[in-house]
Amino acid sequence: MWDHEIKAMASTHAIIAASVFMATVLPAAFVESFSVYGTHLVWIYAVSFVVTVVSVAVFWLLGVTPPTKKHTLGYKLSRLFRCCLYFFLSCLFFHTVVVLYGAPLIESALETFSLAVLLTSLTTLRCLCVLGPNVQAWIRVFSWHGAMSVWDTCLQITVSCTLIGAWFGAFPIPLDWDRPWQVWPISCSLGAVIGFLTGLVVAPTWIHYHRKQLTYKCK
């Protein structure tokens, strides 16, 4: 039924996953002594940047984003502006939530904010790409049975995988193993990225195997 869409999704995900991989490997050529642990913030920003650029490009090319009603330049600009605003607000939101979860308030604020940026680029950005800056739609997608297309379901899966990954990433922090990856926020960001990659794989697979059961109201 949606074979075409599933194929598109799988290839999109493959591209994004490859870009994450490149973002982990390539900076070694430019930054001296680059490593995921050692220069963790560089890695976070590399991954965030690459994921942002690649997702925006891919989704724009695919045309998943709901078509705008007006085509004036001013409207498009305001839309772009709203996207940027939402992106920034979402960074602040994640930062707040992470601090409420117990991250130190002042001490490692930069690290916490970097994690928030990473989480935003892995989750909110995708929402922006798929649903546009439309909070109503976001709430719809993230409530029970609110998905209205394959892409919505895919969005649900990847976002929850990323968040669950970051959540599980916090577990090793209290252990007294003194490993380099236990330093805040390395385990959390690693968990988020691993969760994200898992979500990329799981989403098309799950949809493929459940395509018989899936029924969308407005499709």
Partner: peptide, 13 residues
């Protein structure tokens, strides 16, 4: 043992 020592973290989380 670390999770027992730091059990509060588990509960806060």
């Amino acid at each position: 043992s670390s999770f027992v020592e730091e059990e509060h973290q588990t509960w806060y989380f």
